[in-house]
Design a protein around this nucleic acid. Structure first.
Length: 271
DNA sequence: AGTGCGGCCTGTCCGC
DNA sequence: TGCGGACAGGCCGCAC
């Protein structure tokens, strides 16, 4: 579910409730997430204070004095701030009880998410050490995309969804960025001109920035830390719109499958 | 080295 | 109303 805007929305939402708070307890009801939630997480985190609430790609990082909690929301994960008295529901797998008497609660029906613990620099963690640049930072520019895509035969859509190339671009925002840049999703990554790389980089930055401003995209179950939805779904041009008329040219939006994922595009605007 | 799949899970929706 | 199958916002790990 959550792509970068949804994770960033979540980070901003939980930060005021979590930052500088002491962790009183960690309750693991269901440890079988994508990777088993380590038991030592609870032992190590208890009594520690949350010194930072950061994001790297789609990973959320809670920095404690003695280590870092690494969280990923997978396809269906969400974090809520609630009270200890709020009854845990079926898919509420992990609770972090805080000194302000609030609870940071992870819900994840599909359990593709993760909660991990590291005592060393999280940037060196196996899952984070080979990630590409943040799309909203200056290091992600046309020059970078152009140079790194040379001789790459994968489609441009799977290329920009590859977290080793650039982080945070998932299925929705890949489709939307390619539409805005006028690039066909099946085009070979290596065939883009410098000019079109620039268009695509700008489109990615624009789409992600606008979505963060709208609180992310809620299609079915994404919700913010307070249970509110995000509103970027209203600004989608192609995602989920197969059979509808393109807002720019009136052609019928098409749906195809790439890498076992749905791709939506306008056959006239994108080439 | 790069590419493309299988698989991890549950919930929902659609056609029969 | 029930059932099977397709599909869903991610991404590692493995073959080739």
């Amino acid at each position: 579910m959550p792509e970068l805007p949804e994770v960033e929305t979540t980070r901003r939402g939980i930060k005021p409730h979590v930052h500088k708070q002491k962790i009183k307890a960690v309750v693991i009801r269901q440890p079988a997430l994508r990777w088993r939630v380590p038991t030592r997480l609870a032992e190590n985190a208890c009594g520690q204070t949350v010194e930072s609430v950061r994001r790297r790609g789609k990973y959320l990082l809670l920095g404690l004095q003695n280590g870092t909690i690494i969280m990923h929301l997978g396809m269906s994960g969400s974090l809520r701030i609630c009270k200890p008295s709020t009854p845990a529901e079926k898919h509420d797998h992990v609770d972090i009880l805080l000194g302000n008497n609030k609870v940071l609660r992870l819900r994840d029906p599909r359990r593709f998410g993760a909660v991990l613990w590291t005592t060393t620099d999280p940037a060196q963690h196996k899952l984070l050490c080979s990630l590409g640049p943040e799309p909203l930072e200056d290091s992600f520019d046309a020059e970078y995309l152009y140079q790194n895509s040379r001789k790459r035969t994968a489609s441009i859509k799977s290329f920009i969804m590859n977290s080793h190339v650039v982080v945070g671009v998932g299925n929705i925002y890949a489709c939307e960025s390619l539409f805005r840049a006028g690039i066909h999703p099946k085009r070979k990554a290596g065939s883009l001109s410098m000019q079109r790389c620039e268009k695509l980089v700008n489109a990615i930055k624009q789409v992600l920035t606008e979505s963060i401003q709208q609180g992310g995209t809620t299609l079915r179950d994404f919700s913010r830390e307070n249970g509110e939805p995000g509103y970027f779904a209203q600004k989608l041009f192609v995602y989920g719109k197969a059979g509808e008329a393109c807002e720019k040219c009136g052609s019928t939006i098409k749906q195809i499958t790439q890498q076992q994922r749905s791709t939506f595009y306008c056959p006239k605007c994108q080439h």
